[in-house]
Design a protein around this nucleic acid. Sequence first.
DNA 1: AGGTACCGTGGGAGCGCTCCCACGTGTGAT
DNA 2: ATCACACGTGGGAGCGCTCCCACGGTACCT
Lengths: 351, 351
Amino acid sequence: MATQGARGRSGGRPTLEEVAARAGVGRGTVSRVINGSPRVSDATRAAVEAAVAELGYVPNTAARALAANRTDAIALVVPEPETRFFTEPYFSDMLRGVGSALSDTEMQLLLIFAGSDRERQRLAQYLAAHRVDGVLLVSVHADDPLPDMLSQLEIPAVISGPRSAGEALTSVDSDNYGGARQAVEHLIDRGRRTIAHITGRLDVYGAQRRIDGYRDALREAGHEVDDLLIEPGDFSEGGGRRAMAALLERRPGLDAVFAASDVTAVGARQALREAGRRIPDDVALVGYDDSAIARHLDPPLTSVRQPIEEMGRAMIDLLLAEIADRRPAISRGLDRRQMVLATELVARASS
Amino acid sequence: MATQGARGRSGGRPTLEEVAARAGVGRGTVSRVINGSPRVSDATRAAVEAAVAELGYVPNTAARALAANRTDAIALVVPEPETRFFTEPYFSDMLRGVGSALSDTEMQLLLIFAGSDRERQRLAQYLAAHRVDGVLLVSVHADDPLPDMLSQLEIPAVISGPRSAGEALTSVDSDNYGGARQAVEHLIDRGRRTIAHITGRLDVYGAQRRIDGYRDALREAGHEVDDLLIEPGDFSEGGGRRAMAALLERRPGLDAVFAASDVTAVGARQALREAGRRIPDDVALVGYDDSAIARHLDPPLTSVRQPIEEMGRAMIDLLLAEIADRRPAISRGLDRRQMVLATELVARASS
DNA sequence: AGGTACCGTGGGAGCGCTCCCACGTGTGAT
DNA sequence: ATCACACGTGGGAGCGCTCCCACGGTACCT
């Protein structure tokens, strides 16, 4: 209902040229005004802005993209089956942070799932076509070829959760090691003696770091680390249930469990119930993520909060910076940025 | 300074022209092959395809968009604050359906939040710039100007959840009326006598239809409809809690509640607990959506399943069709499509 | 006074594609 | 033999923008 007023006589959307004519200036000048160049006099700028408003001019992005070789769009690539994306609150929280950071920008967000092979193929085409200025990569496994493809194509990219200690890409992560320590120290403080750990997917670096934190916390508290108390999960509910069942069988005397995600904890809780263990009376349970389900569980779940939304924002900031100073992605590696954000333990009734 | 020299002729991405040269044909012919035109001889086609493969040619989308006036992208517009998007499983389920339907296509998905005024403004610009070929609109309130803007701009659009019985846009919806009836009939079958209803936002057409279904089901079963058993909610958890508290105060004798969403039911459950009512012994509870939380609640929540993923797919199908036969969106209205999908009651322990 | 240095400005030259018209060539009808 | 009419094909003419060079004007120097 807003600008409907004076359409160009040709009927279509007004072009730069028409705005220029209307304002009595040249095409170049209008372009400068539109793009906020300082090299325009105030009077001219005002005239152009008036013409833009009168005509309801909106730049044609395709033309701009073609001429300037940029797209004003970035992609959030999720190298997982879509189901995982939606069952793990991690992703949607991340998306929320990204979305809100982006709304301060001209950039648009593309959501790309790259779980299946076909989707992968499509993605490769897509990236080769340089349809986005940059890429956000969440939850990448150690052997994923995607990051390399990205740097080969010289597409700016930021990864959430580095693949290893020596991650080549700019990355954002929470302090997985510290978070795990917080969880375990908390359980020790609560007087638990036999603390098990259900891990995340072992090919995810963050999951490894959580194991390290678990180990070190026990060690430093003078407990000895019993490897049979560590059981691999995969961040899923089913994985949590299976792991918990295995642990109960192997170490029936355990009195606490640190699960690598809230969803894993939900699965563990099921297995505990089926085995007749009460939470927290018999077994204390701590999750990771502090997602919405943690609050809704019965009893509410103690969990390690990672500032996922902030991580999303940070990813955007870093990515935009990287796009801005379009250095070839394979720079000397001097100014690689690895950002790590702090976690926080949220104690609830489950521990 | 690494690959500086290589970026000349031979280094950049190949263009149509180069493919043509390589294949020994003209530019137009390559374009025809790329776009699957039948008017090319088999021999020529093969030669071109070989050249494309050798050169690793990928069309430049910006150029294509500029010349052909299409973008191969559609937007999913969420006219809500982002928080709502992520707290309501409805949205993510929808997104999942849309995403998977889209992965069979060349189309790309843009996710746009239009909750705040600033975001709205950006969206208007965005649409005016015709940066997408079509728009998917989810969860639109009765007075939202967005749909009108869309049809004025002649942008193909499909809406999930029509705004009224006479919705002008192509729409996809689940059978809200029927779903509500299923819920209420189920409660009646279970022997409940005093069945309350916590509604959704009253400016959402689907919420109105659920109220209609609730009323009619009671009426046809010979119960009389007591308007004091109907309390408005807003699809949120807090809304559900408040509404339930109000109902308990007004009609302490109620023995069942039909909540307009699972999230609402979660809130209602809290209020019931606080009031010392047991579920389902004292009060039976039924939700709507059959989202993940329904299964995880304690006790598990009976809920009305809407085939949200299918709805997402259907929206894509309709939208693509509408884009294909690019008739002006405000056509005669003859072939407006209003698709309604069936719901299903999933009975669990809460009722 | 002439010289130099900037500004602010106009507009040509593409960016890589699609669209469409015009041009052979081969086939069948006359 | 001539005409008609397909069919494949080549390539010009843009699409609307950004980039950049050239230009006149003003201000400040010497």
